[in-house]
Design a protein around this nucleic acid. Structure first.
Ligand SMILES: [Zn+2]
Ligand SMILES: [Zn+2]
Ligand SMILES: [Zn+2]
Ligand SMILES: [Zn+2]
Lengths: 144, 144
DNA sequence: TCCTAAATAGAAATGAATTCGTTTTAGAAT
DNA sequence: ATTCTAAAACGAATTCATTTCTATTTAGGA
């Protein structure tokens, strides 16, 4: 379980440093998205020295290499999520409790084709994210 | 053409102030997204006094009321775009020249249904945006 | 014309995110 | 095991887009 993270890092061409692994493990233990500062506060206890910039840098690098996912949030802060689903899919994120659910498929390929036909443009990336309140939050009457 | 902006503002429950109208007109004259500061610099020439916070506030209110659209950008800065298409649709935004193209339709309704079935969650909003380089940028060899 | 809630000015503050020069370290090579 | 080097981490300082705050002005209805 830890070694699979080492492997994932190696495959992404990144050194498997203790702090990098700890960040991955911390994210792995959550079913919701987390902010760099939250992860930093959590991990600080396990390292005598751990800089907040290190957490920012690693999260960005991990997202860049596709190991983790960046969550787009209305408050415009950075959040990250570790999803094991390697198929192309998207996320429903709860704005109340931060839970993340997978939503399979999307019609991006067809839409990219529309752009290609329309203007000859090239789609480099896409953002498809559903925001809302998850079932358990709704049932518990949590604030939105 | 100016009066239609007055009407749009009234319908959104907003006072039709000169500065608000000027912001709308400035955005209306562009086929691409713009930042608050860019609009401020452009409009400063036409008003002896115009605060940058006023531009920020108005753009946010206009986006909130649905008159204009917010663009999600990888550099995490705020950009806005004035689109006249009132049907539900999404945007392909060029990361090079900032041009915006409409992309009709999306399968959000079906995906919202998946979320409903999966966990009983409620989808409050969604983000669907295609990022890339438009046809004319590609042909001109513009930097990405 | 008067009134009032809404809008604006503009300096100041905010704070998430990043920079930078130094120090440490992972992991390959010997 | 030891050496070496590019990558990683430190962390104080900085950045700068965005927001806050109080005083002032104004749009639009009465
Ligand atoms: Zn929830
Ligand atoms: Zn997922
Ligand atoms: Zn372009
Ligand atoms: Zn549009």
């Amino acid at each position: 379980m830890e070694h699979q993270h080492v492997t994932a890092l190696k495959e992404a061409g990144m050194k498997a440093t203790p702090k990098r692994l700890a960040i991955l493990e911390a994210l792995n233990g959550l079913s919701c998205y987390a902010s760099p500062e939250e992860l930093w506060k959590q991990l600080r206890a396990r390292f005598d020295r751990l800089g907040l910039p290190t957490v920012y840098r690693n999260l960005e690098e991990l997202a860049e290499s596709g190991v983790i996912t960046k969550v787009i949030h209305p408050n415009r802060q950075l959040y990250y999520y570790f999803c094991h689903n390697r198929d192309h899919h998207h996320h429903f994120v709860c704005l109340s409790c931060r839970k993340v659910e997978d939503v399979p498929s999307c019609g991006i390929e067809a839409m990219a084709e529309v752009v290609q036909q329309q203007s000859g443009g090239r789609v480099l990336s896409h953002i498809l994210q559903l925001n809302g309140v998850c079932g358990s939050c709704l049932r518990s009457g949590a604030p939105q």
